[in-house]
Design a protein around this nucleic acid. Sequence first.
DNA 1: AAAAGTAACTGAACAGTGTTTAGTAAACAA
DNA 2: TTGTTTACTAAACACTGTTCAGTTACTTTT
Lengths: 203, 203
Amino acid sequence: MGITERKEREKEEMRQRILDAAQKLFLENGYEKVSIRNIADAIEYSPATIYLYFKDKNELLYAVHQKGFGLMLQEFAPVSAISDPFEQLVEMGRRYIRFAVDNPELFDLMFIMAAPMEACRDDEWDEGKNAFQALVQVVQHCIDTGVFKHQDAEVASMMIWSAIHGYTALFLRKRMMMFDEERRQELMTEAFNLFCETIKRGL
Amino acid sequence: MGITERKEREKEEMRQRILDAAQKLFLENGYEKVSIRNIADAIEYSPATIYLYFKDKNELLYAVHQKGFGLMLQEFAPVSAISDPFEQLVEMGRRYIRFAVDNPELFDLMFIMAAPMEACRDDEWDEGKNAFQALVQVVQHCIDTGVFKHQDAEVASMMIWSAIHGYTALFLRKRMMMFDEERRQELMTEAFNLFCETIKRGL
DNA sequence: AAAAGTAACTGAACAGTGTTTAGTAAACAA
DNA sequence: TTGTTTACTAAACACTGTTCAGTTACTTTT
């Protein structure tokens, strides 16, 4: 009785096809300019079909957001090879920012846009939870090896995440437009470096 | 020849009426659910009329965003009465966060949403520029009085703004949903306090 | 005062949006 | 060969931002 299994496989393949088309269009045109009809056109199906695989557009956005976390974790993988825990933390920050600049639409979906979170039951944002836990581990390592005096790794992690996230959010949403292109780059890297030095000394 | 002056005054009044209605609706229903037609209904004019006073919806959003900065500067005014420059800085941070929590839709318009910035010529975001300069002044004061060792006030300000902005942006856009309501509040205040302590020691 | 000109305003349309529903056609099970 | 389930879609609904021709109403000129 392999029919039901084949059907299930086909259903999953269709879901993936929709997701891939959606992601491709988002990254090409920016999420704001992509409609359900565009995605339907790309996969040569009717718009209504998409609603057989996703409850609504938010759920589709959430699914792409999940794929984003997969990609991000890949980018973070090499960090664990670094021996010095503080250097590990700094490299994580660098990669967070680089990921945001290289994949602005995906990052937006993952950490800025309101819409995808509408499809996520409160207290069940597993992708965010896991990514945050990865940060907490590194910070805990820094505490254990005496790099940081502060003892609460979760609070420290929150502080660090916020600081790094701050730049990227302000930058991506054009809130550094009062500086010209060059000064913007300068401020980004210098402020990042200053933050690293500051927590090394003061945390 | 007071007629042209009266006309000009009336035109400005109409602009204000549109703006007030828009702001009221945004704060009540959230900007996402407010359309040009809603605003037109509220002031009992045709939707087309709004386009005689604002080029498009982004320009309207930008105008409300400007009003937001006016309100924010009011909230910041009492800070200058504090004598200790570091305490001045901390109080600014507290008020930034409080403003965001108390006026989430307005804050969103000012610092997170992409749309209003479309109506702003690059390098001409005066509201942001002025607000940032206010921060730089306080930070410069901290440097002058020896609270901070780091000498570049602009870089330090950028670092501080980003860190404070980080919390608020993550919080408002539901990226702390992996914690329950209570823990969220705890983390917010504790991470803020930790940041203050850290820069006092390390910056 | 009458005619001409200007400014303010609107109805209706255009081209799109997310989403639902009734209906069809094909694949499967009995 | 039936009956049933599944996959899909055309068409509609109720919106959206925006434009434009056409209508008032007021102001200026004759």
